[in-house]
């Protein structure tokens, strides 16, 4: 068996660029990486919502959502919060260094299915990372969709990811709206102050022909779901992505299940109608 057929053998990817989205002990750093092997670079295909196992040899791997859309080019973007051993090691990487990547894993947002619909993303904190490819994908194919609304918030301005991009998005005409918020009042902040679920009610999107996708801390998701229901969204119109501890990424190692669902294979993207049946999904 060669390395290439072995799903556990990672590919090497060169870090082309890095920058910090947020600072502090749990800083979020974004990496733009390109596969070193030309063949891998060419054959790699992923869709918004999918993840990859990235890591550093000698330290380990972590499942991280791919935060770039394939429409952006032959590179991958990962936004990584500094948490444990692996993410600490990843944060040490600088342009020119290498990381390991294998994947892509999991299912994707059914963007084909959603054609002709209005797209609403509701993100909080690092939860914007898996939503970002949707935004980019829809922007690239804006003619296929009726509308794009982005709602995003974080605790403070320092916790906001993709700040500049999102500010730019507000200026961008093909997008009907982008709404930003922080939890606590800060000087110089001209947008909404308050929690994301509250902002959602403020924006008051119509459920008609709309798909709502939310990702963020569990507590935020809980209230966003409640509010979406209040706004008249049906379960089938709501999507979210889950994360659980993973080791293999291919449905073998056993740990990422939420009830009968393997997050790595059946997810990470789930329709709320499915998830509702699985009490463990919101544990």
């Amino acid at each position: 068996m060669s390395n290439k057929e072995n799903p556990y053998i990672p590919h090497m990817a060169k870090v082309e660029d890095t920058w910090y989205e947020t600072h502090g002990e749990r800083a979020i750093k974004t990496f733009r990486v390109v596969f070193e092997d030309e063949e891998v670079k060419e054959s790699w295909e992923h869709l918004p919502g999918q993840c990859a196992m990235i890591g550093v040899l000698g330290v380990g791997e972590s499942m991280i959502s791919i935060s770039s859309s394939p429409t952006e080019g032959k590179f991958l973007r990962f936004s990584v919060m500094r948490m444990g051993k692996v993410t600490q090691a990843l944060h040490q990487l600088e342009p020119g260094d290498s990381m390991t990547v294998r994947g892509p894993y999991g299912n994707n947002f059914p963007l084909e299915e959603w054609k002709g619909k209005k797209i609403l993303t509701i993100g909080g904190g690092i939860g914007q990372a898996p939503l970002r490819p949707i935004v980019e994908y829809v922007r690239a194919n804006i003619n296929d969709y009726q509308d794009l609304t982005v709602i995003y918030g974080a605790r403070t301005t320092n916790d906001l990811c993709f700040k500049q991009e999102l500010e730019d998005l507000r200026e961008c005409q093909e997008v009907s709206s982008c709404h930003l918020s922080i939890d606590i009042e800060e000087e110089g902040w001209s947008h909404f102050v308050g929690f994301v679920p509250t902002l959602l009610m403020e924006v008051n999107p119509s459920p008609e022909n709309t798909i709502a996708i939310t990702c963020g801390p569990p507590i935020m998701i809980k209230f966003v779901l409640e509010n979406l229901k209040k706004l008249g969204f049906e379960d089938e119109q709501i999507y979210t992505t889950l994360e659980n501890r993973m080791k293999c990424g291919i449905g073998k190692c056993g740990r990422c299940n939420a009830g009968p669902l393997y997050v790595c294979k059946d997810g990470p993207v789930f329709n709320y109608a499915t998830l509702k049946q699985v009490p463990e999904a919101f544990a």
Binding site: L57, G58, V59, K247, C248, C253, G254, R255
Partner: peptide, 10 residues
């Protein structure tokens, strides 16, 4: 039972 963990050991 077949669950496993993956670790780097150096």
């Amino acid at each position: 039972c077949h669950c496993f963990d993956i670790q780097d050991e150096v």
